[in-house]
């Protein structure tokens, strides 16, 4: 049992050790090869890192609870894009223009509602048809992307609103708006997963769905709530990001699902469900962003980042397998 616990510690703490190693490595390596004369661990640099982590991070946090359920959501990138289109486009609707700055919270509301609705569609299909979430969201990834193109063809949707930009670029206690949203999401979801009935049921369902059903947990609606949650978070991520940038391309958000899943898996959540944590995912998100920045810092091409992250993901999987092995007595199947 002691052995089991130490393995657990490695699993949960691993991502933070990895982040530490990244910090040390890039600080030392940066000393020799840095393309800028700024230190890697510069506070401003680190704060920026948090901000840059936010868009994928917020989605990845939502993906964690989906994956704890034993599901997956491949449509988050498309939800992200459509919510962004709704956000920016709604600001140009005549009645919204007439509202002046009061239109802004309304626009946010429309965008978030879009996300929740799309999530609800996914959740409802998973619940009512019993099709695997992988297939459902794979299909809606295409379908939702179609909706994005329907809106404005292949043209970008733009609407730079300076009030929004000011809001997005504001800093409170040194942290950007986006960072606060990321932190807020972490706190809320940490609370939900560790302290509430819904969160504990999420683990129970992922762990042993049959048992959860027998215990009277309504699995279908539970799934639907979680898909609505990740839809909301994908929209929130879009709101945070596009308030600042003010222009969305119909292809934006592509591959976000893959980045989010990568962060979640790096953070120790099991693909099979029933195991994982919000804090771990935060670690995964930070580790990826640190890697991007660090490789940039030592002058590596951006393309190297893809290569390294891909290989690290596989390495993590390999290590996890080694840790869960029973040793030589294991059945060789």
């Amino acid at each position: 049992m002691a052995m089991h616990n130490s393995k657990d510690m490695i699993k949960q703490g691993g991502i933070w050790v990895f982040i530490l190693a990244e910090l040390v490595f890039f600080s030392i390596a940066g000393h020799y090869w840095s393309v800028s004369n700024q230190a890697f661990m510069d506070p401003g640099n680190m704060l920026l890192l948090l901000k840059q982590s936010a868009p994928i991070g917020i989605i990845a946090l939502g993906m964690t609870i989906i994956m704890i359920n034993g599901n997956i959501d491949l449509s988050v990138g498309a939800i992200f894009a459509l919510s962004a289109v709704v956000l920016l486009d709604s600001l140009s609707w005549p009645f919204m223009v007439a509202l002046g700055d009061w239109a802004l919270p309304l626009a946010w509301g429309f965008a978030l509602l879009t996300g929740v609705t799309l999530g609800a569609i996914n959740g409802l299909i998973v619940w009512k048809t019993g099709i695997d979430a992988f297939i459902v969201t794979l299909a809606s990834m295409l379908g939702f992307r179609g909706l994005v193109f329907m809106y404005n063809g292949e043209q970008p949707t733009s609407n730079l609103n300076w009030t929004l930009v000011d809001f997005a670029e504001a800093q409170v206690l040194g942290l950007h708006t986006a960072s606060w949203f990321l932190i807020g999401t972490v706190v809320v979801l940490w609370f939900v997963t560790t302290r509430t009935n819904h969160g504990r049921n999420a683990y129970a369902i992922g762990n042993n769905r049959e048992a959860a059903v027998n215990a009277g947990i309504r699995v279908g609606p539970h799934f639907m709530w979680n898909f609505m949650l990740i839809g909301f978070l994908a929209a929130l991520s879009a709101v945070v990001f596009y308030s600042e940038s003010g222009s969305v391309n119909p292809n934006d958000g592509m591959l976000y699902e893959l980045w989010a899943i990568t962060a979640v898996v790096l953070g120790g959540t099991k693909l099979a469900g029933g195991y994982g944590s919000i804090i771990g995912t935060l670690g995964g998100v930070i580790a990826i962003q640190l890697l991007r920045k660090g490789l940039g810092h030592i002058g590596a091409d951006t393309q190297t980042v893809n290569l390294v992250i891909g290989l690290i993901l596989i390495a993590v999987l390999f290590l996890d397998r080694q840790l869960t092995r029973k040793g030589k007595e294991e059945l060789k199947i």
């Binding site: 893959l258 899943i261 990568t262 898996v265 693909l271 091409d301 951006t302 393309q303 190297t304 980042v305 893809n306 290569l307 390294v308 992250i309 891909g310 290989l311 690290i312 993901l313 596989i314 999987l317 390999f318 397998r321």
Partner: peptide
């Protein structure tokens, strides 16, 4: 990785999606 090391194919190929993309960009210089 998937056959002999028995790693989960979804994650392995997800990782390879990213890694091969990096390899391509490195080959072509972007």
């Amino acid at each position: 990785l998937v056959g002999y090391l028995k790693l989960n194919s979804l994650i392995v190929t997800l990782g390879m999606l990213s890694a091969i993309h990096g390899l391509t960009l490195t080959w072509s210089g972007g």
